[in-house]
Write a protein that binds this DNA or RNA. Structure first.
Lengths: 86, 86
DNA sequence: CCCTTATTACCGCCATACCGGTAATAAATT
DNA sequence: AATTTATTACCGGTATGGCGGTAATAAGGG
């Protein structure tokens, strides 16, 4: 169900944000306010801009209740070693 | 199993990259070459820098066989409407 | 229709992300 | 343990990300 993001299909990020923003009934200015970013960057991302800062993107995604996940074959090993630290 | 990333636990991104890089037996310069980025940005990310470009981050993650996923309550609706386009 | 209000599109400026170069440190080999 | 080799840490310069301001366009009300 989750959407995989890489440098080939990055255009989906903008589409996902646009879709969620419209579903939430928000204008770009509304979303910019909530996410604590400028309106321009939302315009840019929705138009496929790839050179956006990860922090900016996370602010926007989190405001729209979208979760970013990292996964891979050995991610389990990482979480286990991290859990061992606490 | 996948690790959730947001602006509160962003430090994990650097740790995940460091963990995977070491497991792959790569120096920062090695990884930089493969990912097509400078060595400095890998140093920065592993030290918790949050203001990195998403494109740069994806290049590094993909080089380490780490997948980025976006998910949320209404993501299914998005994929359905996207599928309908094709 | 016209006028008002809301939303989107674009421009120029400033702060900074990313780069290569080099110094510092660690690891390895004899 | 001294020299070589590999890796990490840091610095300064430059390209550009993200900002507010404003123009253009769309939506809605009387």
């Amino acid at each position: 169900m989750a959407v995989k993001i890489d440098n080939n299909n990055f255009i989906h990020v903008g589409r996902i944000i646009h879709f969620h923003r419209k579903k939430a009934g928000l204008s770009r200015i509304d979303l910019a306010m909530v996410a604590g970013v400028g309106k321009t960057v939302i315009y840019d991302i929705e138009h496929g801009k790839e050179t956006v800062r990860i922090k900016t993107l996370l602010n926007i995604l989190n405001s729209l209740n979208i979760t970013m996940l990292l996964d891979g074959p050995i991610m389990k090993h990482y979480t286990e070693t991290e859990d061992a630290k606490s």
